[in-house]
Write a protein that binds this DNA or RNA. Structure first.
Length: 263
DNA sequence: ATGGCGCTTCGCAAGCGA
């Protein structure tokens, strides 16, 4: 096994059903050529995971799923060693985390709970889950120089990540406790890699299916690639690829891609 | 103000997402 994964792109994409979006993943990756893709909301049990088709496409895969809800997968051009397929000490059956590594680079793929509404039981669950995630990421940072956390984090960290901050103020995805949880992760030594670079204004990664939200660019930036300091130092660019959001029958999220230089 | 779209399921209606 090489010391680490070298120059490549890493991507995160909530596909809202891998069954429906498999051709999108294969088509997009053939063009974008990422070395690793973190998929969320695969929405299928492990026995239904399309491993054969992905292998034919040249992918290795780590995955954990369940029927109908949640489910995450790490696709990679080089095989990854499984680090965890659940959040330690948070075993509740919701398949929301998978982590793998190769050499010194550890890649964590998470689908953070939505939270439903501020104050709801699911909102409390989200905050508790994020607290447990911070603990897990802290242990990973102790063991690895290079850590990437790719996710549908279900938090818009700043008002510039929201198309209409006044309308969204205080609601789930932007509420202060959620944003504080985001900063708790950053305080561990992670960087929101998207903001390492100049970005277009009104950059979003999710748009509601309704009301022509994508056409009107009424979106949120809720999909993130966080990097440890050592990894951020070899990050060359981060961008949101809006193209697949405009394809027929798209996911409501679109890929976020980070380009890494040589190790 | 409401709901609007698209996904799922011991399906044909309802829960959930964001």
């Amino acid at each position: 096994m090489p010391a680490t994964l070298g120059a490549m792109k890493i991507a995160t994409w909530n596909v809202n059903s891998l069954r429906v979006r498999l051709e999108h993943v294969l088509g997009w990756s053939a063009e974008a050529e990422p070395g690793v893709i973190a998929l969320q909301e695969t929405k299928m049990p492990d026995e239904a995971f399309p491993l054969g088709t992905l292998r034919e496409g040249g992918w290795h895969a780590l995955y954990t799923g369940q029927p109908a809800y949640n489910g995450v997968a790490l696709l990679s051009r080089e095989p990854l060693e499984l680090v965890a397929n659940a959040l330690p000490d948070f075993e509740d059956g919701q398949r929301r985390l998978i982590a793998g590594r190769r050499g010194g680079l550890c890649i964590v793929n998470v689908y953070v709970p939505n939270g439903q509404a501020v104050g709801a039981d699911k909102y409390q669950y989200k905050l508790a889950w994020l607290e447990a995630l911070a603990g897990f990421v802290a242990t990973l940072l102790e063991e690895h120089e290079e850590v990437a956390v790719l996710w549908d984090y279900n938090i818009a960290p700043d008002d510039r990540d929201v198309y209409d901050p006044a309308a969204w103020e205080g609601s789930v995805l932007v509420s202060p406790p959620e944003r504080e949880a985001f900063h708790t992760l950053l305080d561990l030594g992670l960087t929101d890699s998207f903001r390492l670079f100049d970005q277009p204004e009104q950059s979003y990664s999710w748009w509601d299916y309704r009301q022509g939200a994508f056409r009107r660019n009424r979106g949120l930036r809720i999909d993130h690639i966080l990097m440890s300091g050592a990894l951020a130092r070899r990050c060359r660019s981060v961008s949101i690829d809006r193209e697949p959001r405009g394809w027929p029958r798209p996911s409501d999220h679109t890929p976020v891609v980070a380009e890494l230089g040589p190790a």
